[in-house]
Amino acid sequence: MRKLLLLISWCVFTVSCSTQQNFSKTENSSIHSSFIPIFGTDATEAIFRGTIDVSGKYFSGIFVFKKLADNKFRAVLMSEVGMTLLDMSFTHKDFYVNYCIEPLSKKGLFKLLYHDFKLALDEPARQNLKRKKNLDIDVKTMVYKKKDSRDFYYFADGTVTKIMSKTLYNKTEIQFKGLNNGKADAIQIQHRPVKLRIELTRIN
């Protein structure tokens, strides 16, 4: 448990340390109005079966995401048998824990999940995304950088396929796979150098 908390603390510390860069040319007219493939264009709820792997320690459960309003979300983590483990509301500014069972009630864990969920769910305003042509992977994949951050969004056909968040000591990479009608069938969240990995598979 202490090892887990140390790892979480490391993640929380490192994701908090961001720097700024100058922007290059702005080109975001091709970005879809809803561009992160969690909810798609027609839904406000998404349910995934998921696993969390922290340095070989394994946990599984069901992840429920609800878009309550623009930039306002609710996330619930529950066991397969239906027990609510963690219930969190959050905006791009802060989070609130509605409920958490005792073994998981750790501030570091809350901050870490808040960071990852916010990064995966909260779409930055399009005017705050700046094109970084020099980082483009190929002709189909365009890279944008979020204003006042080191969060990079990789777009293909107007939808995000990957988000990369860099800080001094940590890198978080979110990959959206199996894109279909603006929704990803699978999502992978990987932290480095901390060996923390979250894998989500859509069930609804």
Binding site: S79, V81, G82, M83, L85, I101, P103, L104
Partner: peptide, 8 residues
């Protein structure tokens, strides 16, 4: 944690 899950 598992105890809680089992109870549930």
């Amino acid at each position: 944690l598992f105890q809680g899950i089992l109870f549930f």
